[in-house]
């Protein structure tokens, strides 16, 4: 019998700090969203007919980049047999995150965390969850000795949350109101 020892000890311990930090971000955003009195107004990128179309399109941009994220991640893990440069994954992720910031800022600053209708409740909670998971993923990335499942799970959760956010905002907006710039 030959025991196979992994060359490097892998455990979930290095995940602890990223997960705690992510949890704090999640809670902090939710608490801010409830305590801060919504202003009903926020500065954001210009060029759209209003705040809601701006948010619908930026979120759609992040959503498209999130699909690039999944494809490039699958390539990185050798699951699709195509080599996509690592830079594609990094920069599509960064861009998606930065596109989402003005949207989330408007949500939290101008509107606050709301739960008057189910769509808004789900959207509010997913929004807080997304930034928590994203923070955990970013903080976990540079750590060594993570379990193999850690990054795919965190990335998958971030992707799932973003898809949910897009469905409960942009997709709802385009279907309920119309596709307007």
């Amino acid at each position: 019998m030959t025991a196979v020892y992994p060359q490097q000890r892998r455990s979930a311990v290095p995940l602890l700090v990223p997960l705690l930090a992510g949890g704090l971000v999640m809670v902090a955003l939710g608490v801010y969203g409830r305590l801060h009195t919504p202003t009903g107004f926020a500065i954001g990128p210009a060029g759209f007919s209003g705040a809601l179309p701006m948010k619908a399109w930026l979120t759609t941009g992040a959503f498209v980049l999130a699909i690039v994220q999944v494809v490039s991640a699958l390539s990185m893990w050798g699951k699709i047999g195509i080599r996509i440069p690592a830079g594609v994954h990094r920069w599509s992720g960064r861009l998606a995150f930065l596109l989402s910031v003005p949207v989330a800022f408007h949500c939290l600053y101008a509107l606050g965390l709301q739960y008057d209708v189910p769509r808004v409740l789900v959207h509010s909670l997913l929004g807080c969850f997304f930034y928590g998971v994203f923070t955990a993923k970013m903080l976990a990335l540079p750590r060594r000795g993570l379990p193999g499942w850690a990054l795919p799970v965190l990335g998958g959760l971030a992707f799932t949350a973003l898809v949910g956010l897009w469905l409960t905002s942009s997709f709802w907006f385009f279907t309920a109101i119309g596709v307007t710039l």
Partner: peptide
């Protein structure tokens, strides 16, 4: 590249703070 993720988070935080200042002083 080990600093990259921190830079990404910081860039997001700076952008949010900038929007906050711009909105508060609009």
């Amino acid at each position: 590249s080990r600093l990259g993720p921190f830079v990404t988070l910081a860039a997001g935080a700076v952008l949010a703070a900038g929007l906050g200042v711009a909105s508060a002083t609009a």
